[in-house]
């Protein structure tokens, strides 16, 4: 069966700022309809800015410059980590829906249907509330419902469940999965939590210092990680019993967003480094269908 066209793709995307910082460096990826593509990595890896660039938010962020090619569906929507901040404090939930339903050329769903879909009450008492009267989980559901009002083909979820407590997080993750199936949405899901990525994603891109260093199906990645950084992430990540604890940092630090390109940016922290790594930046190579990685050690071991 032929693969459908990607809902979103990009090739060699860079993000720069006038102060010389270069937080996204040559990222290429594809997101297919009905699938979740998770971007994982430590904070500062460039995940959020990549997302904003792919969405096209640079018009509204002073100084942000995006280069490269971005294609796919024009209908995009975005949800964020702290929904309380991203909803208008002076506007009721109903007011938000009125505005967002207007933005869709032919709205096929009503506010009540959207609220019901995301599991929120449809009554007036609820829809007349101001966002700050809602719990974090409700706010995130409102945000998801608002995004659906835009009838997107791609949904960007930037750390969308990070701020939620365990049970709410689980239900929101289930809701996002459901969205994928029901609406055929392609979801780009940014997270630093490996367990969240594991439970939700079909594909995972591991970001380090502005680049995707490994890209695999979630199934493969979590069973056979290839890149030393990915392996390090898994080793240092607390087990499921600590799923609410933050990621334990790998020893050493990620180079800052304005670092000079030279050898492998992971060199200083890498337990498997070789002489060549210090001089030459490893390029991203597709080892087999759907498995790409950028690491000299992997290339050597597999004869590339």
């Amino acid at each position: 069966m032929a693969r459908p066209d990607p809902a979103l793709w990009c090739s060699n995307v860079h993000v720069r700022f006038p102060d010389g910082s270069h937080p996204v460096r040559g990222v290429s990826l594809r997101v297919y309809p009905g699938q979740v593509f998770a971007l994982i990595g430590e904070s500062g890896a460039g995940k959020t800015l990549l997302c904003r660039a792919l969405y096209g938010l640079q018009r509204f962020i002073p100084g942000m410059e995006v280069m490269g090619t971005i294609g796919g569906a024009a209908e995009k929507a975005m949800i964020f980590q702290d929904p309380g901040q991203f909803l208008n404090p002076g506007l009721s939930i109903e007011g938000h829906f009125k505005e967002f339903l207007k933005l869709s050329p032919r709205p096929s769903l009503t506010m009540e249907q959207l609220l019901r879909y995301v599991g929120l009450p449809e009554n007036r008492e609820f829809s007349r509330k101001k966002p700050r009267l809602l719990s974090g989980g409700q706010q995130q559901r409102v945000m998801i419902a608002l995004s659906l009002a835009l009838e997107p083909k791609v949904l960007f979820a930037d750390e969308a469940v990070t701020a939620l407590d365990g049970l709410t997080r689980k239900t929101v993750i289930e809701l996002l999965r459901q969205l994928c199936q029901d609406f055929g949405l392609g979801i780009i899901f940014v997270t630093h939590d490996l367990h969240v990525a594991d439970s939700l994603a079909d594909w995972v891109g591991v970001m380090y210092a502005g680049r995707i260093v490994e890209l695999q199906s979630a199934e493969n990645l979590f069973t056979q990680p290839l890149h030393p950084y990915t392996k390090g992430l898994f080793r240092s990540h607390p087990g499921p019993e600590h799923r609410n604890s933050p990621l334990i940092e790998l020893p050493g630090r990620m180079p800052p967003p304005d670092h000079e390109d030279g050898g492998c940016p992971f060199f200083d922290r890498c337990p498997e480094r070789m002489a060549v790594c210090k001089q030459h930046l490893p390029e991203m190579k597709e080892l087999s269908r759907g498995v790409s990685v950028s690491c000299h050690r992997v290339f050597q071991d597999r004869g590339y």
């Binding site: 938010l57 975005m78 964020f80 901040q85 991203f86 505005e99 967002f100």
Partner: peptide
């Protein structure tokens, strides 16, 4: 929220 509204 202004970014969310603009972006949408």
């Amino acid at each position: 929220y202004a970014l969310f509204f603009r972006g949408s």
